[in-house]
Amino acid sequence: MNQHLTESQLNDYVDGAVDARSRAAIEAHHAKCAVCRSELQAMRSLVAEIGELPAQITPSRDLRAGIAERIARAEHHTVPAKQGTIRVMRRARFLAAAAVLVLATTTLTRWWVLRDTSDAPVAPALPPAPSAPLPVAFRTEEARYHDAIAELQRTLERSRAELAPQTIAILERNLFIIDRAIAESRAALAQDPANNDLSRMVLSAYEQKLQLLQRAQVSVL
C-alpha cells in the first residue's frame, strides 16, 4: 500500500468496518505515512464532533411552559438544543493574490448586504395598552407570547454574529411585517375586545413571530 489512503478507506477504518487484513495493511501504511496519519486524525476529530451534534430536535427550554405546550400540541418539531460547532482545519488552497481578491469581493458583498439591511425600516413598538379592557384569557396568552418572544430575541441577539447577513436581513424584514400586522390587528381588537376572530388573528400573528424566531435560531449552528 504505497499510495495514500482514500477517504472511503479512512471512513471505513474509523468506523471499524474493515476486516483484519485490511486493518493491518492500513495500520502499516499509517506507520510510515505522515500525511495519512494526519488525515486519520482529522477524520477522527470530525467524526467525534459529528457525534456531539444533536441526536434529536427538541423544543427549546427557553419557552414558557404554556407556549411550549401549545407548540408541542400543534407542531411536530422546533428548535435544536445547543449544537456543537465543528472546527476543522481548513487547508489553504488559493494563492495569496486570489485570497485577497476573494476578500475584496466578500467585503463588497457584505457592504452591499449590510447597507441594504441598515436601510430596513425599524419595527414598530408594541402597541399601547388598549382603551377598552381585553379579555383576561387573551391578555394571559399575549403575555406568554411576549415572554417567549423576548427570550428568543435575547438568545438570538447573543448568537447574532453566527447568523449570515442575508439571514439577518430576511429575519428583520419579516419581523417588521409581522410586528406591523400585530399592531394593526391589536388596535382593531382594542376597539372590539369581544371579537373572537380578531383575538385569534392577533394571536396567530404572535405565533408567526415566535415561529420565525425559532426558525432563525435553527439556522444558527
Binding site: N11, V14, M43, V47, A48, I50, R90, R91, A92, R93
Partner: peptide, 9 residues
C-alpha cells in the same frame, strides 16, 4: 478540496 466530509455512527 479544502473542506472535510465525514460520516459516523
Amino acid at each position: 478540496a479544502d473542506q472535510r466530509f465525514g460520516c459516523g455512527g
